[in-house]
């Protein structure tokens, strides 16, 4: 009889302790848990990415960051990151477009007001018909390119 009572009391005591320990543990975790780990990782990467190009250019120390160096084109990304507009979250995150204006390409333009023949032979054939001399304009690049 005495053994049965002692066992029942012991069981109740153990159950109560476990429950209170569980509640205490949950409260503790909720208050003291460190911030999510990915936040630190993102901060760390963005810092290194922003600083990497200057370090690699001045000190030739790109080898210190082999994984980052392999992960993006060093020739294009730094310009984007270095631009003050590019680091503005509102613009860089929302628009998802490079804030740097596209550079003008060597687009086609009118080669002046002269009525050019398409080829030398065409001009020579026209010269035979008209009796006019041929004006052959030689140049580097193309007269119908913006940069010529």
């Amino acid at each position: 009889m005495l053994i049965k009572r002692s066992s029942a009391a012991l069981f109740l005591l153990l159950t109560a302790s476990t429950s209170s320990l569980q509640v205490f543990a949950e409260d503790f975790v909720a208050q003291k848990a460190p911030p999510p780990k990915f936040e630190m990782t993102r901060l760390d990467i963005s810092k290194r990415a922003a600083e990497f190009p200057m370090k690699s250019i001045i000190g030739n120390r790109g080898a210190r960051y082999p994984k980052l160096a392999d992960s993006f084109d060093v020739g294009t990304e730094p310009a984007k990151l270095a631009n003050p507009e590019a680091v503005s979250p509102a613009k860089s995150v929302d628009s998802n477009k490079p804030s740097v204006k596209p550079q003008p390409t060597n687009e086609k333009v009118e080669p002046g007001k002269v009525r050019w023949h398409k080829a030398v032979q065409t001009a020579l054939d026209a010269s035979k018909r008209s009796g006019k001399p041929v004006l052959l304009f030689q140049m580097m690049g193309r007269l119908d390119d913006r940069f010529c």
């Binding site: 023949h117 030398v120 004006l135 304009f137 580097m140």
Partner: peptide
């Protein structure tokens, strides 16, 4: 009779 030619890229 005018014509222009490129001797090499600029």
């Amino acid at each position: 009779e005018p014509v222009w030619v490129s001797v090499r890229p600029v």
